[in-house]
Design a protein around this nucleic acid. Structure first.
Lengths: 147, 147
DNA sequence: GTAGGAGCTGGAGCGCGGTCTAGATCAAGT
DNA sequence: ACTTGATCTAGACCGCGCTCCAGCTCCTAC
């Protein structure tokens, strides 16, 4: 009776793997590492039964991991959520700190991108006007004295 | 006589480390791995003497690595450059492929960032209006039947 | 000539984030 | 009842990109 409407499906690990893109190995690993927000249910026979809430949480985890959050931080965040209300300030600061790191990453990547784009441009132009000029010739390296 | 003007300083490994931010270990490692565009010079006593060209190349390497190019690809690129003119098309395609991966990374990171920003917003608002409502309560987990 | 620091080589070790294996159990179809 | 396939646990293993160590040599300064 308590909100069965699509919200509380019980999912096997394989199904969850399919829905999240994580391997079943990774799912078990995440659980062992304490990255989940609550104990995963089990059937009588001992198989894991995930809920759609677990899956939602996993999707959050995936984003955080994708953006480079280390497992340790993710574990800490999960702990906070598990502990329930009262520690929202810490959760916020954790996320804020991570967001800043992500911003920095993006900035760095964009800088790299522009360097690469420039080099791509150089080669493209070089090829366009037909092999003519040498770009960089490590062959003609000017070595320091001592012939 | 041949272009000594600041261009062809001979630098010790420590100096290069300082200029690039790579450790001396990493520099020796890169050399062993064939990531450099030419053999590094040596003094009579066997010490490495880098040129400013080496340093420039290292700066390129750093950007490529920072943006996630695997050592294997970087090695291939270095090989191509080492081989001299004639393979610009391959160099270009290598860089192009990498640029695309970088673009994709940036896109993914921005997506993560927006998810994180949203969560940050939720927590911030929650805290702002004082602890009132529960956000997510894993305590009140609706477990699948059997209880 | 001698002390101290930078550099050399070869190879072992490490941190991270999973991945994989073995061997057993559970569950569904026929 | 039997087969087939998904899942279980514990623990070993892996790839990447360095990092670090031992033991030695080379320089520079005093």
């Amino acid at each position: 009776m308590a909100g069965e409407g699509g919200r509380t499906e019980a999912l096997g690990i394989g199904e969850v793997a399919a829905r999240t893109g994580l391997s079943v190995h990774a799912l078990r690993f995440y659980e062992r590492e304490g990255l989940l927000v609550g104990p995963v249910g089990r059937t009588a026979g001992g198989r894991r039964r995930y809920t759609t809430l677990d899956v939602e949480w996993l999707h959050v985890c995936i984003r955080l991991r994708e953006s480079g959050m280390p497992l340790a931080d993710l574990r800490r965040f999960a702990e906070l959520v598990r502990q329930g209300p009262g520690n929202e300030a810490e959760r916020l600061s954790l996320l804020n700190a991570h967001q800043q790191r992500v911003d920095e990453q993006i900035r760095a990547l964009e800088e790299c991108r522009s360097v690469i784009a420039w080099k791509v441009g150089v080669y493209a132009e070089h090829l366009a006007r037909g092999e003519a000029t040498g770009l960089w010739d490590p062959t003609a390296r000017t070595r320091p004295p001592r012939a």
